[in-house]
């Protein structure tokens, strides 16, 4: 049996860990998982942890507050265990994902399947293309702003860009699916 390429081994480890963590409910185990991932990350640990915290803060904060308020209102108690476990889990998964992205070349991890590589290429090229156009929206406003653009113009331009992005993402998804179909991808 040929040795597993390192990127693919990491992909498998990542997916396994992700699934495992989603089954853990004990804050203790989740805390241990967090410590393990941090140890794996080594010197990159603190930076990745900070990014993971920032990325999950808004979502976790809002979800926790809503849930806490709800249970206080209906059961007159705070589900501290649940809150701790949920937040730890989200953080752990985010941290693991950031570590994964930092360490693994997805193209190499997926190169066993032409189809998966193809899908990844499609996704990456589309997001690059979309990002470029979003940049152009910013430049478009800039080039027409004789005076520094006011709040209203900025807001409108951003809203147009967002609407355009949504439209385009949907149209792209539709077209990509058709293109894949026409190239015999779904057969």
């Amino acid at each position: 049996m040929p040795a597993l390429p390192v990127d693919r081994a990491r992909l498998i480890a990542y997916l396994t860990a992700l699934v495992t963590f989603s089954f853990l409910t004990s804050p203790l185990w989740l805390g241990a998982g967090l410590a393990a991932v941090l140890a794996l990350a080594g010197r990159q640990g603190p930076r990745l942890l900070r990014r993971a915290l920032l990325a999950t803060l808004a979502f976790s904060g809002a979800a926790s507050a809503t849930y806490a308020a709800l249970s206080w209102w209906t059961q007159h108690r705070l589900p501290l265990d649940w809150l701790l476990a949920a937040n730890l889990r989200v953080l752990l998964m985010a941290l693991l994902t950031f570590l994964f992205i930092a360490r693994v070349n997805l193209f190499r991890a997926l190169d066993f399947s032409r189809r998966l590589t193809f899908l990844l290429t499609l996704a990456v090229s589309q997001s690059l293309g979309l990002r470029r156009t979003l940049d152009d929206f910013r430049l478009g406003l800039h080039s027409r702003a004789i005076r520094p653009a006011g709040l209203k113009a900025r807001y409108r331009a951003a809203a147009r860009a967002a609407a355009w992005l949504l439209d385009r993402a949907l149209a792209n998804a539709h077209e990509s699916a058709q293109a894949l179909q026409s190239r015999g991808f779904f057969k």
Binding site: R144, R156, A157
Partner: peptide, 23 residues
């Protein structure tokens, strides 16, 4: 400089979508 330049120079973008944002 900005005021003069932005008034005197206009760019029509390849994708006009990016420069149209008014109602």
């Amino acid at each position: 400089l900005r005021r003069r330049f932005r008034q005197e120079v206009g760019l029509l973008f390849q994708n006009p979508d990016v420069m149209l944002f008014n109602p």
